[in-house]
Amino acid sequence: MPERIQCEFFLIRYVPDVVKGEFTNIGVLLREAGPSSGRDESAVVRFTRDWSRVRCMDADADIGLLEALEGEIAERLRHSATDGKPVMQVLEDTLSNSLQITEARAALAESIPAELEQLMKMYVEPLKVKAERRRTGRAAITAAMRNEFERAGVWGLMRKRIAASLYTRPGDPMKIDCGYRAELQRATAGGIIRMFQAVSLEGDVESAKGLAFSAPQLREGVQRVEDARLELTAVVEPLRSVSSAEDEAMERYRFGVEAMEQQEIRVVTVSDLARVAETARVELRV
């Protein structure tokens, strides 16, 4: 039997009202235990993907900000491994007033990834009900995107909920789901930034039209701000998901795809995500 790894973990809690003291666990930080050396190469963090309990406690909770915080913590932990900053100081610097972290608790792990998964099930994720609702539309696409990028080990290296206003104009409400700067073997002038947006074509095509409308400004803005070429990818459902519907639904689907492709937006389906994630893994040198 392989020797288990001595670990310690911390629960990250959402506390909408510190006076009431009510909270719900939203994440876990796990690291190997041992004499403190000021370096935390093993530290990993994961937040929940199901924000239903947070929404029940606080209908006005900024879920996008909480999701982005996971990536920010992970990025700071990576830097702490090289600059010697203790993990607890990283968390104290990063967490907002509505988030708290528990004291360390001990754990014995077969592996860090397996233990993190188990802790998430035990302390964070809500119990699954038998009649669980199947995710559809954009929610299903975004979940599939995250799953594949996580499987490839690159999700933590990607930017999340990228504000289009950084590249277009102030007040633009659009957020691009995720993206990264590609590390190419043959570096092009300024490089390439790849961005990915989940676009559901099951119901209507307004989101496709909106992305197509914004694409030229995004492309110009990325060139100006980042000195890089933008490759914008829309991830959609496969056509077969609407093939049994009425002809009008299929026509809307084709219209949405064509509208985006006319603006040089690369369109892929969820079936292509494994290949897309593998490309990201190579380009980010994971």
Score class of each variant (00 low, 15 high):
5 I>A: 07
6 Q>T: 14
7 C>R: 02
8 E>N: 08
8 E>P: 00
9 F>W: 05
10 F>Q: 08
10 F>S: 03
12 I>A: 02
14 Y>M: 08
15 V>C: 15
15 V>I: 15
15 V>F: 04
16 P>C: 08
16 P>F: 05
17 D>A: 11
17 D>H: 13
19 V>L: 15
19 V>Y: 13
21 G>C: 11
22 E>D: 15
22 E>P: 00
22 E>S: 11
23 F>E: 07
24 T>R: 07
24 T>W: 03
25 N>Q: 10
26 I>M: 04
27 G>M: 04
29 L>N: 01
31 R>Y: 02
31 R>C: 07
31 R>M: 11
33 A>K: 04
33 A>P: 01
34 G>D: 09
35 P>A: 12
35 P>Y: 14
36 S>N: 15
36 S>P: 02
38 G>F: 05
38 G>E: 09
40 D>E: 14
40 D>S: 15
41 E>M: 04
42 S>Q: 06
42 S>I: 05
43 A>H: 03
44 V>M: 09
44 V>F: 02
45 V>S: 03
47 F>C: 06
47 F>T: 02
47 F>Q: 02
50 D>W: 00
51 W>L: 01
51 W>C: 01
52 S>G: 05
53 R>L: 10
53 R>Q: 12
54 V>I: 11
54 V>Q: 04
55 R>H: 07
55 R>I: 11
55 R>Y: 05
56 C>S: 13
57 M>F: 08
58 D>P: 10
60 D>S: 12
60 D>L: 11
61 A>K: 03
62 D>N: 13
63 I>E: 10
65 L>E: 13
66 L>K: 01
66 L>F: 10
66 L>V: 08
66 L>G: 03
66 L>D: 01
67 E>H: 12
68 A>W: 05
69 L>K: 09
73 I>H: 03
75 E>D: 15
75 E>S: 15
77 L>K: 01
78 R>G: 09
80 S>E: 03
80 S>C: 06
81 A>S: 09
82 T>M: 06
83 D>P: 00
84 G>S: 07
84 G>N: 06
85 K>S: 10
86 P>Q: 02
88 M>S: 09
88 M>C: 07
89 Q>G: 03
92 E>Q: 12
93 D>L: 05
93 D>G: 04
94 T>K: 04
95 L>Y: 08
95 L>W: 05
96 S>N: 09
96 S>D: 09
97 N>I: 10
97 N>F: 10
98 S>P: 00
100 Q>G: 05
101 I>P: 00
101 I>H: 08
102 T>S: 13
103 E>F: 14
104 A>S: 10
104 A>W: 02
105 R>H: 14
106 A>R: 12
107 A>P: 03
108 L>Y: 13
109 A>G: 05
109 A>W: 03
110 E>A: 12
110 E>C: 11
110 E>Q: 10
112 I>W: 03
115 E>C: 14
117 E>F: 12
119 L>G: 02
121 K>F: 08
122 M>S: 09
123 Y>R: 04
125 E>W: 00
128 K>W: 13
128 K>S: 12
129 V>A: 08
130 K>M: 14
130 K>S: 14
133 R>A: 12
135 R>N: 14
136 T>H: 10
138 R>E: 15
139 A>N: 11
140 A>R: 14
141 I>M: 09
141 I>G: 02
142 T>C: 10
142 T>R: 12
142 T>K: 13
